[in-house]
Design a protein around this nucleic acid. Structure first.
Length: 250
DNA sequence: AGTAGTGTTCGGCC
DNA sequence: TGGCCGAACACTAC
């Protein structure tokens, strides 16, 4: 569920609720006051990276699905929802997620140019952020939500494979063309992810993530937990190039 | 049946 | 003060 494209799918799936008025909010969340939503009309749904926003006139709810979160539209899972909005002709149910009230308007809080799925995404801005942290490993940089909001571990692994880059490269060690390509493919793969997820063929299209053999070289992928993020990383030592002088210890 | 993981925050420790 | 680490959260596919 949780990477950026999945949140875009959710946003598209709930469009029918825009303009509808909440009869009552329920749920076992302790983070917000459920009474706030009674009689509030949904003005919009937004997303920023992995954040899903439900916008009312004066307040906005932020849902983050973390690793295990899920949702149901006009049905329920049969377990108590963390947060639920009841309308006279429908309902939205959210499970095992983080629920928060936004402390201000979305435009004040979010840098839309950092969201790889957003129309306002700005590759140049990402480039400047990466250049400002030249020593950060690219396996960590891809997961940095301030640079690539919406990119998660699957997208990370696939982007590194597509661009033939070793996860332990630093940004500054990359040739200029690879720097640009890394940023471009973070966006390209995110939109491929979106398309394949809608077709229910995402997994089938994985080339590196959770795979054991490199499809280019027919050798086993390395599986490690590198960098500060220590997230599961699959890479091929033959085709994914390292440009630094000394390969860092994992 | 047990385990690992599409993620993030927080508190403790050095 | 700050960086690092582990725990917590809570679900389910394999």
């Amino acid at each position: 569920m949780p990477e950026g494209p999945s949140i875009v799918i959710l946003k598209e799936a709930v469009q029918e609720f825009i303009g509808k008025t909440v009869i009552r909010a329920e749920g076992n969340t302790k983070a917000i006051d459920l009474d706030l939503f009674e009689n509030q009309t949904v003005v919009d749904f937004k997303s920023w990276g992995k954040h899903f926003l439900i916008c009312f006139e004066h307040i906005t709810v932020r849902i983050h699905f973390m690793l295990f979160g899920s949702y149901r539209i006009n049905e329920s899972k049969g377990v108590p929802p963390r947060f639920s909005l009841k309308f006279d002709d429908g309902e939205l149910n959210f499970y095992a997620c983080s629920v928060q009230l936004l402390n201000g308007s979305p435009d004040e809080i979010y840098d839309w140019s950092a969201d790889v799925m957003n129309i306002n995404w700005d590759a140049e801005s990402a480039y400047l952020k990466l250049a400002a942290y030249p020593k950060v490993l690219i396996c960590d940089a891809l997961l940095d939500q301030n640079i690539f909001a919406g990119v998660g571990n699957i997208i990370k692994n696939e982007v590194l494979f597509r661009t033939r880059l070793h996860p332990l490269n630093t940004f500054s060690d990359l040739p200029e063309s690879s720097k640009r390509e890394l940023i471009e493919e973070a966006v390209n793969y995110s939109f491929d992810f979106l398309r394949w997820k809608k077709e229910f063929t995402l997994k089938k299209h994985w080339l590196a993530h959770a795979k054991s053999i490199c499809p280019r070289d027919n050798v086993p992928f390395k599986k490690t937990y590198p960098g500060k993020t220590k997230r599961r990383t699959f890479y091929c030592e033959i085709c994914q190039r390292f440009y630094g002088s000394v390969l860092p210890e994992i």
